[in-house]
């Protein structure tokens, strides 16, 4: 069984050595930058940084293969959907129409291809970034990091609790579903939708009651150890920033700076040199 859903693999690379807080800041700023920008040059730069970091973190292909395929399929599906619903969206965005193939509403234009390439690059860079974050961040440091970037410690601890109880609840879920099957309820695709719904309710019930009861008993246990007594709390896994962290943050600031300059010079989120 996977003991942490984040898929955290301990290691000693420079990226592993960064504090959880630093990684959280970098992850959040870069994903936001990547979502906002439609400048192909910038997105390629981000992709290079992200893929480079993937190598620095020494992440093994075998550990990420499944996810990469899944995301690729998802990305391609999304690109197709965009084409199906808005085949001339690129033209609409960039104001020119260069037909490459076919005619009519579904004519393939250069502008559309360019737009979809941008969207594809966005996926391309987001995935390695998330993989690095998930696989090199100790979940415990993640909660401490959330608190450090200004999120209330109660919410940060709620996230820690979610990570703590996901494996337990997964085991509970599987057990309940097996017990239900043994008692005679059928969840497979073979039965009617109505039976499947009843089966789902049969699983929901014990899961709901145990979880609600668990909420009560866990909060009692936490009360008994004075959670929420003070305005702040300290964290066992809080880490001090080291030189490496400052360098990483400086690099992030540089990337933010570049994006601001590009936004300024382009006059919009888009960059289209082929007018």
């Amino acid at each position: 069984m996977n003991h942490n859903i984040f898929g955290f693999h301990p290691g000693t690379t420079p990226i592993h050595q960064l504090t959880g807080t630093t990684k959280l800041i970098i992850f959040l700023s870069l994903t936001i930058l990547g979502s906002l920008s439609f400048d192909l040059r910038y997105l390629i730069l981000l992709s290079v940084v992200a893929i480079g970091a993937l190598f620095v973190a020494k992440i093994k292909w075998s550990d990420v293969r499944v996810l990469v395929w899944l995301v690729t399929v998802f990305a391609v599906l999304n690109l197709v959907l965009i084409y199906v619903f808005a085949p001339q969206y690129g033209t609409h965005l960039f104001g020119t129409k260069t037909v490459l193939l076919g005619s009519g509403a579904y004519a393939l234009t250069f502008e559309q291809l360019y737009y979809e390439l941008i969207v594809f690059t966005k996926y391309l860079f987001a995935l390695p970034l998330a993989l690095i974050f998930l696989m090199t961040t100790n979940p415990s440091e993640f909660a401490a990091g959330l608190n450090k970037i200004g999120i209330s410690y109660r919410v940060a601890y709620a996230v820690a609790l979610a990570l703590r109880y996901i494996p337990d609840i997964q085991v509970e879920y599987q057990t309940i579903s097996k017990v239900q099957q043994a008692r005679g309820s059928d969840l497979s695709k073979k039965t009617s939708l109505w039976h499947r719904l009843k089966g789902a309710v049969g699983i929901m019930m014990p899961l709901m009651f145990t979880s609600l009861e668990q909420i009560d008993s866990v909060s009692r246990a936490m009360d008994l150890r004075r959670f929420g007594k003070r305005k702040h709390r300290t964290w066992y896994y809080a880490q001090k920033f080291k030189t490496l962290d400052w360098w990483a943050i400086a690099l992030t600031l540089l990337l933010i700076g570049i994006e601001l300059v590009l936004l300024w010079t382009n006059g919009s989120r888009f960059w289209y040199p082929f007018k």
Partner: peptide
């Protein structure tokens, strides 16, 4: 003050159940 302990735990465990149901059911 703030979110009560029970609410914090409700968010934590509620989220865990939400994710498991999302993934499996």
């Amino acid at each position: 003050k703030g979110l009560s302990t029970r609410s914090v735990v409700a968010v934590g465990i509620g989220t865990a159940v939400f994710i498991i149901l999302f993934k499996f059911l």
